[in-house]
Design a protein around this nucleic acid. Structure first.
Lengths: 192, 192
DNA sequence: TCCAGATCTTGATCTACATCAACGTGCTTT
DNA sequence: AAAGCACGTTGATGTAGATCAAGATCTGGA
């Protein structure tokens, strides 16, 4: 149950067995069925979620009802509405499952206690944030400087597994394209 | 000299006078003239820089020579090529000054020692990263879901001072627009 | 089994924004 | 004071990608 997350953590910080137990003891295991919400707009996000199985997405819904995907997550990734989680404000994103999934969730108050009891966790979450920050920065620069086709090619180069698992129109939404445009890009690419 | 940065820090963590001294003792004060580089593509970023005066920008240059602005920074903000800094790889961004500026720079090895000696700094930089992360996420969602005009209106709403200080074509570059398009958007807005 | 919805594709048309080009103004540098 | 940039504006035209519409598969639920 905890193998994946402990392995994930051990890449960044070293824990004693006691500390590892301290950590896993506050994790809550949850199963999320396909199309089921992990978080809905308006709720306050209580948890940081580590995905142990399946695939989820975080997305906003605009005034016209259009969905815009902020991030995907698969096994070994974290997913949450970080802003809601950090500031205790209502979430602006929905998170739901694209496949039957399982997550390990840590509650905010538990995480804060953990920071105090095992200071290394400050370091861990700082590193995770750094990586996420850098990924976001690349995504921004891509979106302001690349064509739709270039962005899609970068996407499949960086996330080849996601391209296989996720419906095409969800990827279009992630890239800020219409499904039709992505379909045409793929058709052109197939010829090359 | 250190008033601004100590005030900035005190919003997030509480330091003893000794810890504050420990911190300021590793800061390096630098003056950067308008158009002068703080960091150039290819160099490894050695510093995190806190701006005490002036205005800087971080930007990439694409194959066609086009500049794409990753971020602006003014007094009270941090600026760096975080990826280069964290991974000791050559920077992919230039940072230069849009006005005569001054920064306080902390070197990577000093920061790492600081994390050990004063663990609260882990917390500080985690919080700073969280804020930056959230800002980036909003920018991504804006760029994939809003029109050019909407993005510009959001920009001036969020950064009214930047809109005053920064040349218009730099803002266009930040938003991923051409200077002509931004000029036309502003003309339309003026009528409203 | 059958129906409804989800997904993807293809074509026709539209439009937001880019590109190209010219010009005015006000700094900076000498 | 002159020359040269940097910066912004405006107009004409081009194009990437959106929108609208229709149809083909496929899938899951009653």
């Amino acid at each position: 149950m905890y193998d994946l997350i402990l392995d994930h953590i051990s890449r960044h910080i070293r824990l004693t067995p006691a500390e590892a137990n301290r950590f896993t003891s506050v994790l809550r295991h949850r199963k999320i069925r396909r199309r089921q919400y992990l978080l809905q707009v308006g709720d306050v996000s209580q948890y940081e979620n580590f995905i142990t199985k399946g695939c989820l997405r975080a997305y906003t819904v605009d005034a016209q009802g259009g969905e815009h995907i902020a991030m995907f997550g698969v096994e070994g990734w974290w997913i949450s509405d970080l802003f809601s989680f950090l500031t205790n404000t209502p979430a602006t994103q929905n998170i739901d499952a694209l496949e039957d999934s399982e997550v390990l969730s840590i509650e905010k108050s538990d995480l804060e206690k953990l920071y105090i009891d095992v200071p290394e966790f400050n370091r861990l979450f700082r590193i995770l944030l750094q990586n996420a920050f850098v990924a976001h920065q690349k995504r921004i620069l891509a979106s302001i400087s690349q064509t739709a086709e270039e962005q899609y090619m970068s996407f499949i180069a960086r996330y080849p597994t996601l391209d296989q698992r996720v419906p095409q129109h969800q990827i279009a939404s992630y890239l800020g394209l219409t499904p039709e445009t992505l379909s045409r890009i793929r058709k052109l690419q197939a010829k090359k």
